Simulated scan of single mutants.
Amino acid sequence: MQILKQVFNPNVLRQWAIVFLAGLVVLVTTACGAAQSSTPARDSVGSAGPAQNEAMYPHKDTVRDTSAADAKADRMIRQAEQRIENSDENALKEAAKNIGKATQQAADNAAENTKGAVNRAANSVERNLPNG
């Protein structure tokens, strides 16, 4: 309860309001007054401000040459596409090798299974024959 009384104390709220209003006054006066007083007159004969195409600062920082960055971006895109194509080709070659290996292994397994089945059948027939 003491904390709430301290936070909502009218004297503290009044002090915060004064600080806020003083900051607002400082902000408004410097923002509105600085631009007018800091720009010198171009000539003394009738011109009170900068030329139409000239901003507050005389240098042009809005126009940039991006051709080097564009060329680098294009080069990086081409390299990425080549890497994708190469990895796709490598994957296809690897898949073809894997299919060949898997097919050979399946054929070997089928041959072994057939031999095993023939041997089991022969053993079964020998067991079922009456001893002569």
Rank of each mutant, 00 (worst) to 15 (best):
T29Y: 07
R120E: 14
N53H: 06
M56G: 03
A51S: 05
E126M: 15
G100I: 01
K5V: 07
F20K: 03
P40L: 08
A22K: 04
V26Q: 02
A73N: 03
S38R: 11
E112G: 06
K115N: 11
D108I: 12
A69Q: 06
T29M: 10
A34M: 14
V7G: 02
S37N: 12
A41T: 11
A96W: 07
P130D: 11
I18D: 01
A22S: 13
N113Q: 15
I84E: 09
A110Y: 07
A96K: 12
D65F: 01
G33P: 00
R78M: 07
Q6C: 11
D65R: 01
I3V: 15
R14C: 03
W16K: 06
L21T: 11
N113V: 05
N128W: 12
K5I: 08
L13I: 14
Q15W: 01
G100A: 07
K101L: 13
L13K: 08
R42F: 07
E81D: 10
L4M: 14
N98D: 08
N109R: 15
L13C: 07
G100E: 08
V125Y: 13
T62Y: 06
L21K: 04
T30M: 09
G46H: 02
T62R: 04
T66C: 03
K72V: 01
V12I: 14
A34I: 15
K72F: 01
T29K: 04
D61W: 04
T30W: 05
A68I: 02
N53A: 05
V25L: 14
V125R: 12
D108G: 03
I3K: 12
L129F: 12
N9G: 02
A69Y: 01
Q79P: 00
E89N: 13
Q104E: 13
G49P: 00
E112K: 15
A35M: 14
S44E: 11
V12R: 11
A22G: 06
Q15I: 06
A68C: 02
D65H: 01
A110Q: 13
I3T: 13
Q104M: 09
Q82G: 00
V12L: 13
N119M: 15
E94K: 12
N9K: 07
V125L: 15
A110D: 10
L4T: 08
Q79A: 13
C32F: 15
I77L: 10
D88C: 08
A48W: 03
V28C: 08
G46I: 00
D74I: 01
G132I: 12
E89V: 04
A48V: 03
S38G: 07
P10E: 02
R42A: 07
E112M: 15
E89D: 10
N53S: 05
N90F: 05
V125M: 12
D61V: 02
R42L: 11
N53P: 00
A73C: 01
N98W: 06
N90C: 02
V7D: 06
A73R: 04
V12H: 06
A121F: 14
T62L: 05
Y57K: 02
D61P: 00
D61S: 04
A55V: 01
E112H: 12
R78W: 06
S38M: 14
A96V: 09
L21R: 04
Q82L: 09
A106K: 13
E112A: 15
P58F: 00
K93F: 09
D70N: 08
I18K: 01
V125P: 00
Q6H: 14
N11Q: 14
D43H: 07
M56V: 05
K115H: 13
V118S: 03
K101V: 09
K97E: 10
A111T: 14
L4G: 06
N131L: 15
